Simulated scan of single mutants.
Amino acid sequence: MRSDIKINDPNPQWVVETMPQARVMRDMLLLPDGTVVIINGASFGSAGWELRQNPVLEPLVYRPDKAV
Rank of each mutant, 00 (worst) to 15 (best):
E50K: 14
R63C: 09
P20T: 04
G48S: 14
P64G: 06
T18V: 09
G48M: 07
F44E: 08
D27P: 01
Q13C: 13
A67E: 15
M28H: 06
P10S: 08
V36I: 10
E58N: 10
R26A: 13
K66Q: 13
R26V: 11
G41S: 00
K66Y: 07
G48W: 10
P64K: 04
D27K: 13
W49F: 12
L31T: 11
Y62N: 02
R63Y: 08
Q21P: 01
G45I: 00
S46P: 00
R52E: 13
V36F: 05
L30F: 06
L31G: 04
E50P: 04
L60N: 00
N54L: 12
V37T: 10
D9Y: 05
A22Y: 05
L30P: 02
W14F: 15
G45L: 02
T18W: 01
V16I: 09
V36Y: 04
L30K: 12
T18D: 14
N40W: 10
T35P: 00
I38V: 11
P20Q: 04
P12V: 01
G45P: 00
V56Y: 00
Q53Y: 08
D9T: 05
I38A: 00
L29D: 07
D33I: 06
I38N: 00
L51E: 15
K66F: 09
W49K: 07
E17Y: 05
N54S: 15
S43M: 10
V61K: 12
V15M: 09
V24Q: 05
Q21R: 14
P20N: 06
R26M: 15
V16C: 06
A22W: 08
M19F: 12
A42M: 03
P12S: 04
V16T: 08
F44S: 10
P59I: 03
G34N: 05
M25N: 13
L51Y: 12
M25Q: 11
N11K: 12
E50A: 08
T35Q: 09
P32F: 10
F44G: 05
M25D: 09
G45T: 02
K66W: 10
R52F: 08
D33K: 04
R26Q: 12
Y62C: 01
P59K: 04
P20D: 03
N54Y: 11
N54G: 12
V68E: 15
Q53D: 08
L51P: 02
I38Q: 00
L29K: 12
E17L: 13
S43H: 09
M28N: 13
V24N: 05
P32G: 11
Q13R: 14
L60S: 00
A67I: 11
P59N: 01
G45S: 03
P10V: 07
E17V: 14
I39K: 02
D65H: 14
